[in-house]
Amino acid sequence: MILRLVAGRLAMLAVTVAVASIAIYGALYLAPGNPATLLAGGHATHAEIRLITRQLKLTEPFFTRYWDWLFGLLHGNLGESFLYREPVASLLAPRVLNTVFLVTYASVVIVVGGLALGLASALFKRLGMGITILTGVGLATPSFVAAIILITLFAVDWKLFPVFGGGAGFVDRLDHLTLPAVALALSWLAYTSQLTRTAVEDEVKKEHVETARGRGIARRHIVTRHLLRNAMIPISTVSGITVAGLIAGDVVVEQAFGVNGLGSFLVSSALDKDFASVQAVALILVATFVVVNALVDIWSLFLDPRLRAKGA
């Protein structure tokens, strides 16, 4: 029963990615400007440009080109960068790790920090007031503003963290990516905290919690088995979307901190009209987003037995 639901969800995932691939490819197809002109340089003749255009197969109809691209993708070939004359895959390889590290780091900060703050503000009324004010400010701070403040304070003034770059090796990366991760996480953390607070407060009022209290169950067990356990359902649904949203926020933060990752590569490739790279990165970001969402959906099947029944 649960397997069928999971299979259905995975099929939906495949369809979404397929549709997204058409949209991504189509958007760049329609984008103004000819990459051949750019590649040939300022002094190129018409004949040279025409040659490059033909080499890049830019004259072929849309679906032929899309099909070639898709065929390549399915065979693990992300295409070749016009600019660097190198397979996109080998350009991405060193950058992927930075981005994965950064996004994972930020996700952990969001989930751990958001849950802890939200739970604390739901259970301790006085503390809750302060936390609500702080998270309100956090929620209103965009990541590029947070980045500037963090760099100024922690990197420049107090010299606690490096200003620039992604680092190499685990510890060095951790050091380099702490500020970027915090900048990326801040508003989502605030959001998750407020969401957790609301979800736990809703759950506190539920009758089954009253039953548990009436049976003499210890407060810490009520919190873990009844409050958090049940509140996890809305929390994980929404925070799954927030984590997926980090992938978009990542572009800004990598630029701000000079982290050489997928986000900053996407920006520079777009500026250079390096279509193959843009397409590849965009598709990876979309696919990750969709996969994270699907994982959250599947995870909530495990959290909530009532959902399993509905699908049967």
Partner: peptide, 16 residues
Amino acid sequence: VAMIFQDPRAHVNPVR
């Protein structure tokens, strides 16, 4: 002491 509540649907945790 043990209490039996009116609405078992609401008074038993639905996810356990």
